Simulated assay, not measured.
Amino acid sequence: MSVFKRLKENFSGMFKKLFNKKNARIGIYGPPNAGKTTLANRIVRDWTGDAMGSVSSMAHETRRARRREGVTIRSNSHSISLDIIDTPGLATKIDFHEFMKQGLGEAESKRRAKEATEGVIEAVKWLENLDGVILVMDATEDPFTQVNVTVIGNMEARNLPLLIAANKIDLPEASPTTIRNAFPQHPMVAISALEGKNIDTLYEEIAKRFG
């Protein structure tokens, strides 16, 4: 091999190392109240000491995507730096009457419904700029919802790496096995984002899947 060719290859390798260093952009998706923000807070707090956003039992509390850059996750055998994007809950229909049932006035309910709808559109647009998705499912609910099936189909069409987090296993009615059986083509980790159960296993899988 000539000296010139060797220098060219060495320079090419150095160039790739210098300019391919970027954080993987990972979106946290799922239906309302599946525990997306709870999981985002858990990840960010565990690795930075901060929090991502407020959590509420009211659906569509997160109505705008929130991004936290440079979260480095280290597992036993892998390490990865992430930009975490906590997205609004995906829904096929957002009815302002649902907010009114929570005690909000009509005007406030309509405003929230409008913002939530815009948030869903924003979440879908984010898919163009992601390197992977963590899909949070409520392990106490039927996994065969229109939202879950649509999201998984969308991820598969885009060839985006997908990791399913079967959340809320701290609840007695949780059945993560049902989720695993429903979508066996994708890796799944059963967790409790609230209590931190199996969270280290999730971190290991995140580092392997998106690294």
Rank of each mutant, 00 (worst) to 15 (best):
Thr201Arg: 13
Ala123Trp: 05
Ile164His: 03
Gln102Trp: 05
Glu106Pro: 08
Gly103Arg: 03
Met58Arg: 14
Gly89Met: 07
Arg45Lys: 11
Leu39Val: 08
Thr38Val: 13
Ile169Asp: 08
Asn198Lys: 05
Ser192Val: 06
Pro143Ser: 05
Arg74Met: 12
Ser81Ala: 12
Gly153Phe: 05
Lys125Val: 05
Thr37Gln: 02
Ala24Phe: 00
Val149Glu: 12
Asp138His: 03
Leu163His: 00
Leu18Gly: 07
Ile43Pro: 08
Ser79Phe: 02
Ala123Leu: 04
Asn167Asp: 05
Ile169Pro: 06
Gly103Val: 03
Tyr203Thr: 03
Ile84Glu: 03
Phe19Val: 05
Lys93Asn: 12
Ile43His: 09
Pro31Cys: 08
Ala24Cys: 06
Ile206Val: 12
His97Ile: 14
Thr178Met: 04
Asn129Glu: 00
Asn167Glu: 01
Leu104His: 06
Met52Arg: 06
Asp200Glu: 14
Arg6His: 12
Arg111Asp: 04
Pro31Asn: 10
Asn154Gly: 09
Ile179His: 02
Phe183Val: 04
Pro187Gly: 02
Arg112Leu: 12
Thr145Gly: 13
Asn154Trp: 03
Arg66His: 11
Glu141Ala: 14
Leu162Gly: 04
Gly103Asn: 02
Pro187Leu: 06
Met1Thr: 09
Phe11Ile: 09
Gly132Cys: 06
Ile169Phe: 06
Ser175Met: 11
Lys168Tyr: 01
Lys5Tyr: 01
Leu82Glu: 05
Gln185Val: 01
Ile84Asn: 00
Gly119Tyr: 02
Ala182Tyr: 03
Ala59Ser: 15
Met100Asp: 02
Val3Tyr: 00
Lys8Trp: 10
Ala166Thr: 03
Val133Leu: 13
Glu115Gly: 05
Asp170Lys: 11
Thr48Lys: 15
Ala139Tyr: 01
Val3Met: 10
